[in-house]
Design a protein around this nucleic acid. Sequence first.
DNA 1: GCATATTTGTCCGTATGTATA
DNA 2: CTATACATACGGACAAATATG
Lengths: 233, 233
Amino acid sequence: MTTGQADGWLAALAKERGDLDRSSTAERVADKLRAGVLEGDIAPGRQLNEKALGDALRISRNTLREAFRLLTHERLLVHEYSKGVFVRRPDVADIVDIYAARRVIECGAVRRWPHAADAAKQAVRDAVALGLACRERGDWTGVGTANVRFHQALTALAGSARLDEEMARLLAEVRLAFHVMGDPEEFHRDYLPLNEAIVTRLDAGEVRQAEESLLTYFDRAEDHLVTGLRAKG
Amino acid sequence: MTTGQADGWLAALAKERGDLDRSSTAERVADKLRAGVLEGDIAPGRQLNEKALGDALRISRNTLREAFRLLTHERLLVHEYSKGVFVRRPDVADIVDIYAARRVIECGAVRRWPHAADAAKQAVRDAVALGLACRERGDWTGVGTANVRFHQALTALAGSARLDEEMARLLAEVRLAFHVMGDPEEFHRDYLPLNEAIVTRLDAGEVRQAEESLLTYFDRAEDHLVTGLRAKG
DNA sequence: GCATATTTGTCCGTATGTATA
DNA sequence: CTATACATACGGACAAATATG
């Protein structure tokens, strides 16, 4: 039953419609939908009914479809012709593809460490420190957020906004995959030591060894996701 | 005078409107516009008038706007608030950003050479061979096309469709930049020997040296574009 | 297999606000 | 200030595809 939209998340979305009108309606709607998808409130595979959603959000179909297009470009929704739009369900092939891309981009960015701006380097250290602080107080959601920020900071070492955007898309897809396998993301705890090792080695000028640690992380994370998706997907 | 659209390319676009309706109208229109922009028929900086274009192509403004959105996401068009849609004019900052991304992605992909699929390796060799053949018969446009294909083939070594798509976007932007500086692209001739060297070194297992040649290429190409844009832009 | 209701695809006209000449 | 052109959003019309009984 994918058409019934009278869940909690829909009511929550509709209630928040009193904000300042900063950007366009479509973008604001897309922001809400994106948050709902990434938080897992709108489950992967669920269909988004145009009329029901449009009525609930009090926007026209055209505007809603515009929001759908934005999120489809971000690979968070999929469009099935004459059937509608659905929250994406990344499969094993997607994970393999995503991690192939991450290996190239993040390792390549790490190798730019010697040429990176100081602010970019500090952002990497800060992300690890944030993760450690969250672990101290048992905030596993915070640890997950810090981990995402860590990898965005690594990418930013390359100094390319286009690369940063692509990485944001890839990390969002990974989050979707977590929701497919129903993983509460707290396993990020296991990766904190690796992140620490990467920063330590970078600060010691051991770029090569840092890259090795990063590759170890990718192997583990990819394996975790692939086996998880094979089991639950 | 940017609003008068009665050029050759518009007539050409309108005439071809008898195709099979495979994809959506917006996508077909986007395909035509994309081709016009990348071939240089629609010059960078030119405004695309909604009404004139819509009337000429016999499509509604909504549909045209949808096509605009697609191309805006590909960074080929830009929306200027309350002014309209224009063909993008990449500036020096864009070039620097793009080449930072290319260095990371393509070098990272080249380093995957030992693990790459045979077909992907062969595609790299084929692209160089195609470039040489085109040079033989003085087909400089063909040399340029082969060069683009070469870099797409390098990227494909990583085996990630997402990376391939991002590279296609980056290379399209580079083509736009060529048109900004009015370069006929025949200078690609100078880079053919570098491409040859890269393949030779890869086949000899000298991945590290191949990467060095690639970096040399990036330095030269980026410098060429930056100085060209500073002069003509 | 068939008929019906629902949903989506495509396109249109319009209305309002805003920026530019 | 007026006229123009555009961005944005809305609601509706109709065809086509799909789902449902």
